[in-house]
């Protein structure tokens, strides 16, 4: 490695960028992977129950599972239809 290379490449340490991107990505993909298998079945059943009372579309329900150090949070978001406007309801 010569002198010119040294000055040219020391400007942008791309390995640090690579590491940061990978840490974020791998953490995200691991959390996706560790999601329990029953989540999809649970989502479907919940939707069926709600549909007994209100008419909502298949995609009007989203479910996310988040994990921090001490607890897991299951968040359910259902968009209920309204005559005048669509009003989201959080639970």
């Amino acid at each position: 490695m010569g002198l010119i290379d040294y000055f040219r490449s020391s400007r942008q340490p791309t390995a640090a960028i690579a590491k940061e991107r990978l840490q974020i990505l791998v953490a995200h993909e691991r959390s996706e992977r560790s999601k329990p298998d029953y989540l999809i079945a649970l989502q479907k059943e919940l939707l069926d129950v709600i549909r007994k009372y209100v008419h909502v579309d298949q995609d009007a329900i989203t479910m996310t599972m988040e994990q921090d150090d001490s607890r897991e949070v299951l968040e359910l978001n259902i968009v209920l239809p309204d005559e005048s406007e669509r009003r989201p309801m959080h639970r």
Binding site: S9, S10, P13, T14, A15, A16, K19, L22, Q23, V26
Partner: peptide, 19 residues
């Protein structure tokens, strides 16, 4: 090792830390 030293390549420690 040359490219790692220049900050152009992930180091052994980097990869071990991630995986």
């Amino acid at each position: 090792p040359q490219r790692v030293k220049l900050g152009e390549m992930l180091s052994v420690e980097d990869v071990q830390e991630i995986l």
